[in-house]
Write a protein that binds this DNA or RNA. Structure first.
Lengths: 155, 155
DNA sequence: ACAACATAATAAGGCAAGCATATTAAATTA
DNA sequence: TAATTTAATATGCTTGCCTTATTATGTTGT
């Protein structure tokens, strides 16, 4: 066994980081008396970036199935953070938008995000941190590309 | 809104990477005709590193509750990858070990891990990759430290 | 020696984040 | 206008955790 199975493998490592940062983020969220989950916040973040869109486009952006998005939107709509309005150009489709009530929450969420970032990057010199962040961005793009290519291959 | 909520925030970014790499890993696992999940593989990896241990120590190592570990071990025991034996020094405790059958699987898992790593790091120059990996390791350690400190503060 | 407390594993049950499959209505293409 | 595709959803599942008891034990203080 030259390379035995190892908790320090990059896959496990990234996963650990994700669980850790999610824990910190949720801690901050709770401290701010918010009731959204990290995954819900992610949906809101994508919505904030893309603006009013159809659900299936949002699903693409999030990298999940339309059905999964439906689930998130159901909850977010109940919390009155998003709205579904019929698409006048396609009566099957719905356009989702953030409500006014959401913008308040969004600000608090981004504050929680910033605090999380501070906690995480604490003790790392800014330069290292910057390199790490940029590499992470690049990695995500690379992997996303290879993933869609593979999907096409299967079809 | 100076720093609006953003899918490129480090928290979301790390989470995306985790989901992506998990997807690739599970793809490899399936291709190898294995039936373990990524989380189960993680448990096995920790067990391989630490050797025979009591369950609650394994739980510490994994950063989860003893009850969660019980669940994983139940499944892994049914797959005959781990064994629970009574601890002669403490009749409440159980020592968990990997079975012989596991070592086979372990090798295949680590191969899947290596392939995953290759896929992920593809297109990144080795030096960047190395810096990224090392920073990730350091981050995990840092965060783990601050997390346990905070836990103590709460108590 | 014994009461009080702490610890190891587990049972029961819950919640969140997805997924797959099937359905319905509407749009598109042939 | 028939056949196919697409948009959203209902239903129901799996996985990865968690919390809160409960039951055996161990440990500690008196």
């Amino acid at each position: 066994m030259r390379t035995p199975i190892d908790p320090d493998s990059i896959g496990f490592l990234i996963n650990d980081l994700a669980r850790q940062s999610r824990a910190i983020f949720e801690h901050e969220i709770e401290a701010a008396n918010l009731t959204v989950t990290a995954a819900e916040a992610r949906v809101l973040a994508h919505m904030a970036r893309t603006g009013a869109t159809r659900q299936h486009l949002l699903a693409d952006s999030l990298g999940m199935t339309p059905m999964s998005v439906t689930g998130f939107l159901d909850r977010l709509e109940k919390s009155e953070l998003v709205e579904r309005t019929p698409d006048p150009k396609d009566r099957r489709a719905k356009i989702v938008t953030l409500t006014e009530r959401a913008s308040d929450i969004l600000i608090q969420i981004s504050q929680a995000g910033r605090k999380t970032e501070q906690t995480i990057s604490e003790g790392l010199c800014p330069k290292e941190w910057d390199v790490f962040y940029r590499t992470a961005l690049q990695l995500r793009r690379n992997i996303a590309d290879t993933l869609v290519t593979d999907q096409k291959d299967e079809a």
